[in-house]
Amino acid sequence: MLSKSQARTFFLGGTIVTFAIFLGLSWNSLSNDVPKQTNLQNLTEQVVRGKHLWESNNCMGCHTIFGEGAYYAPELTKVFERRGEGYIKAALMTQTPWAPRGRKMVAYGFSDAEATDLVAFFKWVGEVDLNGFPPKPDVSR
């Protein structure tokens, strides 16, 4: 039967080995996958300004991006492709709450420049290679 010191060895050994593998895989992802899959050359200052607006207004508190966030408002990873610049800017710049089907979004009233930054962010996000996410609907109606 397992002794206490064997159990401790299992715990420490397993932890160290898996953590080392995890660090190695992370290193590999960050140095090889990220530059390719996220198109680093397109990560302009405008995109970064858009990301900052995305964060400082907690857009993730309602929406998801890369499938991460809250489930109150639509997934925005492919929003640029789906809606286009005009629609997105209208939702961002309006002074009264945008409320498709009655569900209200905060009326942020962004300036044209800010809205353009956010659109650039969405465009960059939409081009990231997400291993196939979001899935294409495959049941015909």
């Binding site: 996958d33 899959q37 890369f66 499938g67």
Partner: peptide, 13 residues
């Protein structure tokens, strides 16, 4: 890490 823009190895691991 499946769908955030890093490699497919994470799908297996």
């Amino acid at each position: 890490y499946y769908y955030i823009g890093v490699g497919k190895i994470w799908l297996i691991i």
